[in-house]
Design a protein around this nucleic acid. Sequence first.
RNA 1: AGCAGGGUAGCGCAAUGGUAGCGCACCAGGCCGUUAACCUGGGGGUUGCGGGUUCGAGUCCCGCCCCUGCUGCCA
Length: 445
Amino acid sequence: MADVIRIEEVSAHVGETVAIKGWLYLKTGKGKLQFLRVRDGTGIIQAVVFKKDVPAEVFEAARRLSQESSLVMTGTIRADPRAPGIPGGYELGVDDLQIVQVADEYPITPKEHGVEFLQDHRHLWIRSSRQWAILRVRATVIMAIRDWLDSNGYVNVDTPILTPAAGEGTTTLFEVDYFGQPTYLAQTGQLYNEADIYSFGKVYCFGPTFRAEKSKTRRHLTEFWMVEPEVAFCDLDDLMGIEEEFVSHIVRRTLEERGPELGLLERDTSALERVEPPFPRISYDEALEKLAAIRAETQDPVLKEALALEWGSDFGSPHETALTKLYDKPVFVYGYPTACKAFYMEPWPGRPEVSKSVDLLAPEGFGEIIGGSERISDPALLEQRIREHDLPPEAFTWYVDLRKFGSVPHSGFGLGVERTVAWITGTRHIRETSPYPRMLNRIYP
RNA sequence: AGCAGGGUAGCGCAAUGGUAGCGCACCAGGCCGUUAACCUGGGGGUUGCGGGUUCGAGUCCCGCCCCUGCUGCCA
């Protein structure tokens, strides 16, 4: 039997007789000619079955194939500019064809479907070319994340998912019964990261996090993946430098390795090619001024109302969108009011009402993909903040301990994988960037 | 949680209070280069659930369930 090749590598096999194992994605029959578009997991290729070139039973088999039927084809690869596929431009002239299974009537057709129907069939929907491309990009983003961190001196030290107390008292947590003791699914690994830097210097944790927020928006999941680097002897400026190198690397790797997928998604890659350091850095105060200016200019009363903001409040979605439209690459906003941020953030020198925090907002209206800060290094101040936020001091004894044994300025951030993939792929709703998204009202399949 | 929109064939949609229809998918037939092919024919319905108004309800009224979009919260 001919060697089995992967569609991804088809250009290296022109003129050869090969075998391809896969599933029928689409069939357009034409009398004595059958066009089969076949997926194998690495791409899609058009296979052509001519009645005069194959035995009658092979042609009959091709005619019987239903969408998603599994098959093994043997034939010759040829270049043909008419041929669709990923990558396009090549097709298989079929000599022989074995059906592995004729699929039952497949519910997802090439036509339109509603959101609920597609989500109910997520186990099948992931085969669709758009979903396939997004999830391939996701895998590359994850590889680029690990690659950059591993090759820049970060040690991967994963943090627990079952935790005894809230990481950031503010958000709602999923409670689980841990042998009779109430325990929570982690919403961040940051506090443990802060312990780990005192052993390794630079660390990151990477895994799923859980937030029981009743959010129903295009940018929220209740279970999402987050990578959280944490660095000793690192201030807020250093942190922004790390973030822009890190994010630029992720984008560059995706452009290098997932061109066909981004093409299928019709992503404007010129916008991604501009993502190189340095990124603009604006303070919260400057951002407020820019928003006020946009607000003064707009004729749209709805937007005018949505952009109203007092000093001291955190940005909402409309503010982020308006702000990022001013730039053609990701933008840092730093120095948020202390009152709207977590308890552990270092205050700005001389301005206790401002924290040494920084968010990174993705361009084109995709919004926040990173949240980070310099952490409090003084034990007395940290204890004071725990009291001010009404957190149970006994749960944070170990965390305060870290400030007593060689405390140093340190900073870290969390990057949301799904939001980053949504931005890079140009996907409007975050649910398509997770293989099996968990949301308010969605836990199946 | 708030505001707005929606639920009719497997899927996407239509239907002044008066015989529930169209496209896709599916089945049968035709077609030698299709790009979500096309042509001819065919089967397929408890109109989300419960009550009410009416001679008559997919359509109007009340309650409930579910979905979508946006906002808040955040990555």
